[in-house]
Amino acid sequence: MSSTHDTTHDEAFSSPDPAMESPEPGVEEHYPDEWQYIKVALILFLITMAEVGIYYTSGARRAVITLMVFMMIAKFALVALYFMHLRFDSKLFRRLFVTGIILAVAVYLIALSSLHVWQH
């Protein structure tokens, strides 16, 4: 390996991108303990129960749907942040995943809106 390459490589390590601020790969002490995982699972269970309970209530349709979507986002975020460790891992991973989500939501919301799906 050339000395030029070594220098470039060292510089890359000495000035890391802020997006990559993270524990080293394989370092696990920042991850939650098992009880925290169990607590998150309990919250997920309770939200699912609440979702199903709301399904059987008769209320303002728009308000019920908004509440259900809010609960869905809460469950999604809990799994992604705690079970998938996005809260504890590098910001780069979060950006990759969130970019995919934002792209998907934006593209398909525009597509569905242009097809007047919400008026149906």
Partner: peptide, 24 residues
């Protein structure tokens, strides 16, 4: 060079792309 695992970056990029598949 990123200080991160390439395999893990690839997995997150793959999962990001899967969002588009299931979104469709």
């Amino acid at each position: 060079s990123t200080g991160l695992s390439n395999e893990k970056i690839a997995m997150w990029a793959f999962l990001g792309s899967e969002c588009l598949l299931f979104g469709a």
